[in-house]
Every structure is written in C-alpha cells, then in structure tokens.
C-alpha cells in the first residue's frame, strides 16, 4: 500500500517536472513565434493585429537573405569536413590502441569543454597575427575553420557511440571472404556506421547554422543569421527578427526528428 502510494507520488513528481521543464524550454521559442505574427512595428503587447506582413518584409530584405545564404554556406562546408574528420577520429579513438591513445582522445575532445566565446577570441588572435604575417583578413573561411574546430569533437562523440556498439567480427568475416580493406570500408564499415554518421552530420549542420559566438568573433564583416539577429537586438528590433527566428525553427525541428529516427533504426 505504502509502496503504491510512493510510486504514484513519484509519477506525479516526475511527469510534473517534465511538464514544467518543457514549458520552460519552449517559453522563448513560442514567444518568438507569437511576435512574428504581430502586425505593428513594435514588439509589445497587446497585439495590434495578426498578419504575415513581416514574413513578406523578410523575403524582400536583402541583408537577411544574404545572412541566410552565408549561414547555409558555412554550415554545409563545416558539416562535410567536421563529419569526415570526426568519423575517422571516432574509429581511431574507440577501436585502436596506439602510443598516446589517451592524449589523442583528450586532444580530440577538449574543445567541447572550452567556452565558445573564448575559443573565438583565441582563434581571432591567432588569425589576426597570422593574417598580418601572411596578409589575409578574417572572413567566411576563418569562420569555417573556427566552426570545424568546435564541431568536429561533437561529431566524433556522436559517431563514437555507434562505433562502440559495432561488432568488429563482421569486418573480419568480410576480410576472410577476400574483400580488400577499401571494400571492407565501402561495403561493411561505413554502411553499419551510417546512422551515427548521418545524425552527426545533422547535428554538425545545426550547430554551425545557429552558431553565434564563433561567427561573431571570426567572420569579420560577414553577417550570418545569428549575428544578423544579434545586431538587430542591439539596435532595437521589429517583428522582422521573430519572423526570421520562426523560419529558422522549421528546418531545425525537422532535422532533429530525422536524426532521432535514424538513431533508432
């Protein structure tokens, strides 16, 4: 009897805190979605009316479209490179034992625990000093390098989970059947790791696409969506910015759902 009461009580506490945290997590997201439909110029309540006016403005605003294009370009290049390097590092870190395995794991993972703003600043110093010597200035390519440094460890950790659960005897079997080491990768290893690699790629894309700190330090005068929004907040904003936010949310949630499906199969 007491055990059952305890069980009921624990259920209420757990589901109650789940509900509370989801509300907490979604307050700012729904606030932005709501304000994006505000007709008036100002971001205050009560609403003057509901309209899609700011979505129209958004698609006529060349700065916003430019920022969207820059974000996407940076994210695509970062995703490809970070996922490739991260996947290989994951295999090396989990499957192989070599001189300095632990040092390798530490080096490969440590940027995860480094505050992004500081990473951005440290890299900005590096690129500024190098840039003065080699005559280049910060821009899209330095932003991409910064994103790769930060996102590769994420990709590595996600793929490493998949590698960890991977049965290496399948590879041996293929090798015994006469497959070359390239064929083993092409037809056995990569297909088996694919769900992990693909969800790593999705996360890499989202992390890069929405990255503020590194871009803010490293992109020079190039604007991406997050830095464009940040400058908008600073000036005093209009519902244009919530509209951008809402547009960004849609591919985000779709990609997260996709990544979740993949890891289950």
């Amino acid at each position: 009897m007491i055990a059952r009461l305890e069980g009921r009580f624990i259920d209420i506490v757990l589901w109650g805190s789940l509900a509370a945290i989801l509300i907490f997590f979604y307050i700012p997201i729904f606030t932005l979605i709501a304000f994006s439909f505000q007709e008036g110029r100002f971001l205050t309540l009560p609403f003057e009316g509901i309209s899609l006016r700011w979505y129209g403005e958004l698609f006529r605003n060349t700065n916003a479209l430019n920022a969207l294009w820059n974000s996407t370009l940076i994210a695509i290049i970062t995703t490809v490179i970070a996922t490739a390097i991260g996947t290989m590092a994951a295999i090396a870190a989990v499957r192989y034992r070599f001189r300095g395995t632990d040092a390798f794991r530490l080096l490969a993972g440590v940027p995860l625990a480094f505050p992004q703003l500081l990473l951005g600043i440290v890299l900005l110093l590096w690129f500024s000093v190098l840039g003065r010597m080699l005559d280049f200035s910060t821009g899209i390519s330095t932003a991409i390098i910064g994103h790769i440094v930060y996102i590769t460890p994420f990709a590595m950790v996600i793929v490493a989970v998949q590698v960890y659960n991977f049965d290496a005897t399948v590879e041996d079997a293929a090798r015994d059947c006469g497959a070359s080491s390239f064929e083993v990768y092409r037809y056995v290893t990569i297909p088996l790791l694919w769900p992990g690699i693909f969800s790593a790629a999705i996360f890499a894309f989202l992390l890069s696409w929405g990255n503020f700190y590194l871009t803010y330090s490293l992109a020079g005068s190039t604007r991406t969506l997050p830095t464009f929004i940040f400058s908008g907040i600073a000036i005093g904003s209009s519902p244009l910015y919530p509209a951008i936010a809402t547009v960004i949310f849609i591919p985000g949630i779709l990609l997260v759902i996709l990544a979740n499906r993949l890891r289950r199969t």
């Binding site: 989801l22 997590f25 606030t31 989202l206 992390l207 929405g210 990255n211 940040f230 936010a245 985000g252």
Partner: peptide
C-alpha cells in the same frame, strides 16, 4: 526530440525570446 530541439536551437534566438518574454511590455 523536444529537449534536443530546444537545446540545439540558436542561442541568440532563445535569449532574445526570453528578453521579449520578460520585457516590461512583454
């Protein structure tokens, strides 16, 4: 999915959303 999406969404946007929510006229 709900937690991951909230986590991975652009930090600038979420903080901006909070500012709008908590604003004097928010």
């Amino acid at each position: 999915v709900l937690i991951t999406f909230a986590f991975i969404t652009d930090a600038t946007l979420k903080i901006y959303g909070w500012a709008l929510f908590l604003d004097k006229n928010g």
